[in-house]
């Protein structure tokens, strides 16, 4: 089924790159929040003697705040358009991460987001709109460290 022209025009929207500093304390607080005792995410000495040479990020953490600038800006422009298309409620549908290189404390990442796709589907409770947001993370050496594809469900 078709999406509104207003939503169609938002496909391909890109965000201004956002700089994210990966701090040890932020990594520790994240590991602590999910009750993950892994010393690679908490113990500098252990991590430095590991093959990583430094504390690393648990999968899915890219520095604080995680959903920064880019994604929030895209959402801010999407939300009213989704509401006008009859789907004002927004839920996180899921995510697909690909990890290419470890992310270490001290890294400075540049994240860039893009509205990769918007499509509508007829569900049990009416129309649902699925928006795919693609984000890439590049480190200070210019290497691609991770990619995420997040699905936002509106209904």
């Amino acid at each position: 089924m078709a999406i509104t022209d207003e939503l169609k025009a938002l496909i391909g929207t890109t965000t201004e790159p956002v700089i994210m500093e990966v701090e040890r304390g932020a990594i520790r607080r994240y590991a602590d929040a999910i009750d993950d005792p892994n010393p690679l995410f908490r113990d500098v000495e252990h991590a430095q003697s590991s093959r990583y040479g430094e504390m690393i990020c648990p999968p899915g953490f890219f520095g604080w705040p995680v959903k920064r600038g880019g994604v929030m800006e895209v959402l801010a422009s999407l939300t009213p358009a989704l509401a006008r298309a009859g789907c004002p409620r927004i839920l996180d549908g899921g995510v697909d991460f690909e990890f290419y290189l470890p992310i270490r404390a001290g890294d400075i990442l540049t994240s860039s987001g893009k509205v990769a796709d918007i499509r509508a589907r007829e569900g049990k409770t009416g129309t649902m709109i699925f928006t795919t947001l693609e984000t890439t993370f590049i480190n200070q050496n210019g290497d691609l460290v991770a990619k995420s594809r997040a699905t936002i469900i509106s209904l």
């Binding site: 590991s50 999968p59 899915g60 953490f61 899921g94």
Partner: peptide, 23 residues
């Protein structure tokens, strides 16, 4: 999703590498 990350990094140990996680 972060719990699932914990599941995998615990299971694979320090020499394992998580390449993809989707849910």
């Amino acid at each position: 999703r972060a719990w699932l990350g914990h599941l995998m990094t615990d299971w694979t140990g320090e020499q394992g590498i998580l390449k993809r996680l989707s849910c």
